[in-house]
């Protein structure tokens, strides 16, 4: 897969609501379009996005063909403990892109 831009605050207070943003590059080919040869271009989309904080799931989403290229997610969560937030995108080709961000909770 391509490139991802993650936005996580480096520090937060315990119990604070924080904003997390994640943008990933992906063609999100729907499987409904035809190529120059008239044949259908095989579907290739990210079908699942999963975010874990120290191994525990905090956000996940199933994606479908109507979602545009380079999907962007923004969500909030409550800061509980210092550690690593791991972002995983899984696509139809079986590839997974993994990005991590460290956060300190005081």
């Amino acid at each position: 897969m391509g490139r991802a831009l993650i936005n996580v605050p480096p520090k937060a207070r315990k119990g604070q609501v924080i904003d997390i943003k994640a943008l990933v590059s992906h063609p999100m080919e729907t499987g409904y379009r035809t190529g120059p040869d008239g044949a259908l271009v095989p579907r290739d989309i990210i079908n699942r996005f999963l975010v874990t904080w120290n191994g525990q799931e905090i956000f996940s989403a199933d994606l479908f063909p109507a979602i545009a290229a380079n999907p962007y997610f923004a969500f909030t969560t409550i800061a509980q403990e210092s550690g690593t937030i791991t972002f995983r995108w899984f696509d139809d080709k079986g590839n997974a892109q993994v990005e991590t961000a460290a956060i300190v909770v005081e």
């Binding site: 391509g2 490139r3 831009l5 936005n7 943003k21 943008l23 590059s25 380079n70 962007y72 923004a74």
Partner: peptide
């Protein structure tokens, strides 16, 4: 953080 053009910059 949301501008998809930043993917090209990266």
């Amino acid at each position: 953080a949301a501008n998809p053009g930043m993917l090209s910059v990266a």
